[in-house]
Deep mutational scan, measured.
Amino acid sequence: DESNKPILLPNESQSFERSVQLLDQIPSYDTHKIAVLYVGEGQSNSELAILSNEHGSYRYTEFLTGLGRLIELKDCQPDKVYLGGLDVCGEDGQFTYCWHDDIMQAVFHIATLMPTKDVDKHRCDKKRHLGNDFVSIVYNDSGEDFKLGTIKGQFNFVHVIVTPLDYECNLVSLQCRKDMEGLVDTSVAKIVSDRNLPFVARQMALHANMASQVHHSRSNPTDIYPSKWIARLRHIKRLRQRICEEAAYSNPSLPLVHPPSHSKAPAQTPAEPTPGYEVGQRKRLISSVEDFTE
């Protein structure tokens, strides 16, 4: 099969070098950035008060330690540790928490760990991170309901609301924008112990962030949302095809390698009803078989 044979790379090609550099910018793992907010007593309706908090309760602090690993920003190499735009020179604080497994990295933009500057009256330095995160974990210690939209931002799609209760338990629920209701189930609340709260809140936030990324990708319907490693695979396959075309153009005697095509017509299947918005969006999480067989 010609399409699977190794090909020689061009010795000097600026377009090839640019493509390789672009490939280096696509990590081999999925990345997520999640905002974390603490809401104190009497702050449920005040964005400024929430963003001005420099610490929270003892249970909130224990919750943070379970979310991930504490890292010092100045020691991080952005090409190895995903920071979601946090500055490593102290502009966004000294520490944050991050978490990773074999296929993804997540960083938490924690408002109480970011510096509260006197010259920044409206807390814009914090909002440029927190307001651009799709998902926020809100530790609501106010005793009042927290409403979506209290923290203004164009991309605040989903809130994971943590409400501490007695007996070391917590109520965990989801809020989302109306255009996200087909992807996020907000109907079920959970009672979770303090011990298990970081794991549950983190998983709910990661799932909500993946759904938000799919939702946000609708602005470019021709580019369905893939995982990062599938995006790398697609980029490599496009690069291979372009090299083959350039080689055939410079030397017409060489065969032009095309991806294999299936001449056999697909079997006719009964027509199915058109899937609704929710089903269609969830299918976009699934990769096409052509990603692996071309």
Rank of each mutant, 00 (worst) to 15 (best):
A208M: 08
S13E: 11
S217H: 14
P226R: 06
I50C: 03
L22Y: 10
P255T: 08
E72S: 11
D145M: 04
L37F: 04
S142D: 02
Y29P: 05
R202D: 00
I191A: 02
C76M: 07
P275K: 08
Y277A: 13
L113D: 04
K74P: 09
D30N: 08
P270H: 11
D1Q: 10
V192N: 00
E91I: 08
S212E: 01
D120I: 05
K127V: 10
L165P: 00
F95H: 07
Q203T: 08
I243D: 04
D166N: 03
K190W: 13
I151C: 08
V20R: 07
T65H: 13
V158N: 01
F16Y: 10
V279A: 13
S13M: 06
Q77W: 06
G85Y: 03
E17G: 06
H258L: 14
I7L: 10
C98L: 12
S227Y: 06
V289Q: 13
S52Y: 02
Q203A: 03
Q241R: 07
I71R: 08
N220Q: 06
P221C: 04
K190R: 14
R18L: 10
V192S: 01
D79V: 03
C76L: 07
P275H: 10
S15Q: 12
D133Q: 04
S173L: 04
P6F: 05
I224H: 10
Q77F: 08
V289G: 14
L130K: 03
L37E: 01
G40I: 00
W99C: 03
C169I: 05
V200D: 01
E47F: 02
L239E: 13
L183S: 05
L48M: 12
M204P: 00
S250W: 10
H109L: 06
R202Q: 03
A267G: 12
V160N: 00
L254N: 15
E47N: 02
Q77P: 12
Q213M: 11
L174R: 01
H129D: 05
S13W: 11
P6R: 05
W229C: 07
Q213H: 10
Q241H: 11
V257S: 07
A106M: 09
R195G: 09
T31I: 08
T293P: 12
S28P: 09
P266I: 14
R128N: 06
E72T: 10
K190F: 15
R18C: 08
L8Q: 14
V107R: 07
Q14A: 12
F146H: 02
I286Y: 10
K121G: 15
L23S: 07
E91F: 10
S261W: 08
L8D: 13
G66T: 01
S13Y: 07
I103E: 13
I103W: 13
S219M: 10
A267L: 07
H32I: 15
Y225I: 11
P221N: 05
L83V: 11
W99Q: 03
L171M: 08
K121C: 11
Q213A: 09
R218C: 10
P10Y: 06
D118R: 15
D24F: 02
A111I: 02
V20W: 06
L239H: 09
G84H: 13
I161L: 07
L86Y: 13
R284A: 11
I137K: 00
G280I: 08
G93D: 07
I34E: 01
N170H: 10
D75W: 05
P260H: 13
P78D: 12
P226M: 05
H262T: 15
V88E: 08
F134D: 01
R202P: 01
L254S: 15
L130D: 05
A49I: 02
E54D: 08
L165D: 02
P6K: 08
D166P: 08
Q25G: 06
E168Y: 04
A211R: 02
E62M: 08
